[in-house]
Design a protein around this nucleic acid. Structure first.
Length: 381
DNA sequence: GTCCTTTTCAGTCAGTCAAG
DNA sequence: CTTGACTGACTGAAAAGGAC
């Protein structure tokens, strides 16, 4: 017999993200090599827009407090510009811009009013939310090349400077209008960087913790950019003679060898609502989705996760369920599955998946910022 | 200082649409 | 019809702010 009781909203399962708390694990490993990028900070044009905005802040003497609202208006201005001049490229807010521009309007309205925002929360989902932190941490604006390139850029283009000045004077939802034809005057600002601008971006966006060893290797072997995760790590390790670099690559590969199989097994468990203990114990996927790795250098968390892969199916799943329970408890939410007398009960199915052909030695789930790095490298070359 | 709340940042994943 | 790529919103984690 079952009793249906009302769920405590503070103790229900929230969201579908990261049930095993792996985000911090892979991120910490990735940060050992690529210190500032995030997985979503991958567009050169977004970085260029930030560079222009900070140059305007300085030249137009925009107060710190006014900078954020100014930036949101400026982002709108540059969004319409890039849509007009670089039709094929996407960006955050492109849907809204496309809709508005499809009617070939003579001018577009810019303001911080909800109706004019590019996204439901432009500040959070646009350039401000996704790039401001990587951008300020890499200290791009401290470089003398930055001032040499961007200050003249914003000062020497009259139409641009006039338009930006106008935007800087607006307050709250007060609208400004930009004629569509005018945008061609400054669309070149978003062209692929060359000369000093390119050098500056390479120096800062493609920085690493090993004296630019990653950049040098990719420069010397551009084909590496199209390799899969483990192939890339192998190729980099083989061709480099920098021992620190190689050690970090090894650490990243070993981390993935631990968390990827565990992630796959957890997602696989989610595909059924109930598992009998003997089903778990005899399951061929849980048994075979094990990898070989070196646990040297692992912190305590990763080490204990690694141990799970050496245990029996049942013990491994027990460990995963416990890990999820701890992660959920930290978030003040309920565990996604729990053991009952004779088996495992699954309560949350979001994110469930099963790939029969999964091979823990060659396939990966987490990217350690390599894909952002490579994407930026391709955009700059 | 500690503890709790609010804000900000960043990754994941669903929805959508286009190509095969 | 299936697959894949892209966009955008949601939500966890961390940082910042505030009360004591």
């Amino acid at each position: 017999m079952y009793f249906i009781t009302e769920q405590d909203p503070n103790y229900s399962i929230k969201g579908s993200r990261d049930p095993l708390g792996f985000q911090v694990v892979w991120q910490a490993a990735g940060r050992k090599l690529i210190p500032y990028l995030s997985t979503v900070s991958g567009s050169i044009k977004d970085f260029q827009i930030l560079c222009l905005a900070y140059a305007l802040k300085k030249e137009l003497k925009i107060e710190d407090k006014q900078f954020e609202p100014f930036f949101l208006r400026f982002e709108q201005m540059m969004a319409y510009t890039r849509y007009k001049s670089y039709q094929k490229e996407g960006f955050n807010g492109v849907d809204k811009v496309r809709k508005l521009m499809s009617g070939n309007p003579a001018s577009v309205r810019i303001s911080s009013a909800i109706a004019d925002q590019l996204l439901s929360n432009q500040k959070a989902y646009g350039i401000w939310g996704k790039y401001n932190s990587p951008f300020s941490e890499m200290r791009l604006t401290d470089m003398p090349e930055y001032s040499n390139v961007y200050i003249p850029k914003v000062l020497n283009n009259d139409a641009f400077l006039r338009q930006a000045t106008l935007l800087s004077k607006k307050r709250d939802a007060q609208p400004a209008y930009i004629e569509s034809d005018k945008m061609d005057e400054w669309s070149d600002f978003l062209q692929k960087p060359s000369g000093i601008e390119k050098k500056l971006f390479i120096e800062k966006l493609l920085d690493d913790t090993c004296g630019k060893e990653l950049l040098n290797q990719i420069d010397n072997n551009p084909d590496f950019r199209d390799l899969s995760f483990y192939e890339l790590i192998q190729a980099l390790t083989d061709s480099s003679s920098n021992s620190n670099f190689k050690a970090i690559l090894g650490y990243i590969a070993n981390t993935e060898k631990v968390i990827c199989p565990l992630n796959r097994i957890f997602r696989y468990l989610q595909t059924k609502s109930y598992w009998k203990n003997e089903e778990i114990e005899t399951d061929p996927y849980i048994k075979n989705w094990r990898s070989t790795f070196e646990s040297k250098g692992f912190d305590e968390t990763t080490r204990s996760l690694a141990t799970l892969l050496t245990l029996s199916n049942y013990e491994l799943v027990l460990g995963l369920v416990k890990r999820n329970e701890e992660v959920a408890a930290r978030r003040n939410s309920a565990a996604w599955m729990q053991f009952t007398e004779n088996g495992l009960e699954v309560n949350h199915f979001e994110g469930a998946f099963f790939r029969e052909e999964y091979d823990p030695e060659t396939q990966n789930d987490f990217n350690y910022f390599f894909s952002t790095f490579i994407s930026l490298h391709k955009q700059l070359n």
